[in-house]
Design a protein around this nucleic acid. Structure first.
Length: 207
DNA sequence: TGCCAGGCCCTCTTTAGGGCCTT
């Protein structure tokens, strides 16, 4: 029980909140999830010529010195884009990772073609008992696997992948939905939160 | 000049405000 279709779960570490000349991706982690299992991984630091503020270095453990010896951002993002291809994308608080993915692709003259599903929006709708919807809190609260150091790109991407699978299993087990697709998740995350129970009931009855 | 995210959700709401979540 899980999503059968292959999806790419992505997480960026960055040196700020809004992408721009001085605010860039510093690390990317991507896992391919298929039938509830991680079947491939991609991870790299990347050097975009930016510096890391002390607060973010403390959060992520990524320093300006580490970036100086990392491969160029264009090389890493080209490889990441090839790794993902047209596989549907997923991220936790996808609005954040989507804007960095789109910005960095634009620097290469490329454009995203697929939608993002968001485990934050989905967990707010489906996992209502959680104390909050931070990725780390959800991982601990639902006893999902420990993937390593939080706030590093690959560990966070694996955490989000485990959360996505838990969401799919919960939708199947508790709401009677037989087949969970990326498209269904994208539709569900747009349903007004208060109307989600009625929406899920309608889906389970084949409406 | 001075400012500096933004989309989402909830409620003491809708002519709005504040907290959440990502780094």
């Amino acid at each position: 029980m899980s999503i059968k279709e292959r999806v790419a779960v992505i997480d960026f570490e960055t040196n700020g909140i809004t992408p721009g000349r001085d605010c860039r991706a510093t690390e990317v982690g991507i896992v391919l999830l298929e039938n509830g299992r991680i079947v491939d991984r991609f991870q790299s630091l990347m050097n975009a010529g930016v510096s890391i503020p002390p607060m973010i270095e403390q959060l992520t453990g990524i320093s300006t010195a580490m970036l100086r010896t990392a491969p160029p951002v264009a090389k890493v993002m080209s490889e990441a884009a090839r790794f993902v291809g047209t596989t549907p994308l997923v991220a936790h608080n996808a609005g954040f990772d989507r804007k960095f993915w789109d910005y960095e692709l634009a620097q290469l003259g490329a454009r995203r073609e697929q939608d993002f599903a968001c485990t934050l929006l989905l967990s707010r709708r489906v996992l209502r008992t959680a104390p909050d919807h931070k990725l780390g809190t959800l991982t601990r609260f639902f006893a999902l696997p420990d993937t390593g150091r939080a706030h590093r790109a690959l560990a966070d991407a694996e955490m989000a992948a485990n959360l996505l699978d838990y969401l799919a299993v919960t939708l199947q087990r508790e709401h009677g939905l037989p087949d969970i697709s990326h498209g269904l998740l994208c539709r569900l995350q747009k349903v007004v939160a208060a109307k989600v129970p009625a929406y899920l009931q309608g889906l389970s009855q084949g409406e």
